[in-house]
Amino acid sequence: MAIVKSKLLKQLSNNYPNFLKKDLEKFTDIILNEIKRTLKKGDRVELRGFGVFYTNIQRARISRNPKTGEKVNTPEKKTIHFKMSKDLFKKLNNEE
């Protein structure tokens, strides 16, 4: 099951009852917006102990519509990739 922003905020407010919910929401918005802004610039985002987000440029190409078989021009676009840290990998696979 995926975690959505509202559940994350609820969990943060339960773990840190001294902070106001609106402050926690502002804090998470700032962090997520900084990650977006950095990736949009083409830089990588490294969160120690969690992983690295980085962008790749997918070249323009001629692809095919699978339903009709018609050729379609696909423009160049950026894609986001994530590589988890060794620490996170070990925790997920119960290796310590």
Rank of each mutant, 00 (worst) to 15 (best):
residue 5 K to M: 11
residue 56 N to K: 15
residue 20 L to I: 11
residue 74 T to A: 11
residue 90 K to R: 15
residue 23 D to M: 09
residue 80 I to A: 00
residue 10 K to N: 14
residue 37 R to K: 15
residue 96 E to F: 08
residue 95 E to L: 13
residue 14 N to I: 09
residue 95 E to S: 11
residue 7 K to T: 09
residue 35 I to L: 04
residue 54 Y to C: 00
residue 25 E to S: 14
residue 82 F to I: 06
residue 41 K to D: 02
residue 71 K to I: 11
residue 41 K to Y: 04
residue 52 V to E: 00
residue 87 D to T: 13
residue 79 T to M: 02
residue 24 L to Y: 10
residue 26 K to G: 03
residue 96 E to N: 12
residue 3 I to S: 01
residue 91 K to Q: 13
residue 33 N to T: 08
residue 82 F to M: 02
residue 88 L to A: 08
residue 74 T to V: 15
residue 82 F to H: 05
residue 15 N to T: 08
residue 41 K to N: 10
residue 82 F to P: 11
residue 39 L to M: 10
residue 44 R to V: 00
residue 69 G to L: 09
residue 55 T to F: 08
residue 11 Q to Y: 09
residue 22 K to W: 11
residue 32 L to V: 05
residue 64 R to A: 02
residue 69 G to K: 05
residue 35 I to V: 15
residue 44 R to W: 01
residue 17 P to Q: 04
residue 43 D to A: 01
residue 22 K to I: 14
residue 26 K to W: 11
residue 70 E to T: 14
residue 24 L to R: 04
residue 50 F to D: 01
residue 76 E to Y: 08
residue 1 M to D: 12
residue 57 I to N: 01
residue 66 P to G: 02
residue 79 T to G: 06
residue 29 D to C: 05
residue 11 Q to S: 12
residue 84 M to R: 00
residue 81 H to F: 09
residue 70 E to F: 10
residue 20 L to N: 14
residue 25 E to M: 06
residue 22 K to P: 09
residue 10 K to C: 06
residue 59 R to C: 01
residue 74 T to D: 05
residue 81 H to C: 07
residue 33 N to Q: 11
residue 22 K to D: 12
residue 35 I to Y: 08
residue 59 R to F: 00
residue 51 G to Q: 08
residue 1 M to T: 09
residue 33 N to M: 05
residue 89 F to R: 15
residue 75 P to T: 06
residue 53 F to M: 04
residue 96 E to S: 07
residue 78 K to G: 03
residue 24 L to K: 12
residue 58 Q to G: 07
residue 78 K to N: 02
residue 41 K to P: 03
residue 44 R to A: 03
residue 92 L to K: 13
residue 70 E to H: 10
residue 57 I to S: 05
residue 51 G to P: 10
residue 94 N to A: 10
residue 41 K to F: 03
residue 55 T to G: 12
residue 76 E to Q: 14
residue 19 F to V: 04
residue 24 L to V: 04
residue 55 T to W: 13
residue 51 G to T: 04
residue 73 N to S: 15
residue 94 N to C: 04
residue 37 R to W: 05
residue 68 T to Y: 14
residue 30 I to A: 13
residue 4 V to I: 13
residue 62 I to H: 10
residue 16 Y to M: 09
residue 71 K to A: 14
residue 31 I to M: 05
residue 33 N to V: 00
residue 3 I to M: 13
residue 86 K to S: 12
residue 17 P to D: 01
residue 55 T to A: 03
residue 75 P to G: 08
residue 87 D to C: 06
residue 89 F to Y: 14
residue 8 L to Y: 10
residue 85 S to E: 11
residue 40 K to F: 03
residue 43 D to F: 00
residue 8 L to G: 07
residue 29 D to F: 04
residue 11 Q to V: 08
residue 54 Y to V: 00
residue 65 N to V: 07
residue 61 R to I: 04
residue 95 E to N: 13
residue 13 S to F: 00
residue 80 I to Q: 04
residue 61 R to S: 11
residue 38 T to A: 01
residue 21 K to R: 15
residue 33 N to A: 03
residue 36 K to P: 10
residue 27 F to K: 10
residue 11 Q to I: 09
residue 57 I to D: 03
residue 9 L to A: 00
residue 21 K to E: 04
residue 42 G to R: 06
residue 2 A to W: 06
residue 53 F to I: 01
residue 57 I to P: 04
residue 68 T to S: 15
residue 70 E to I: 13
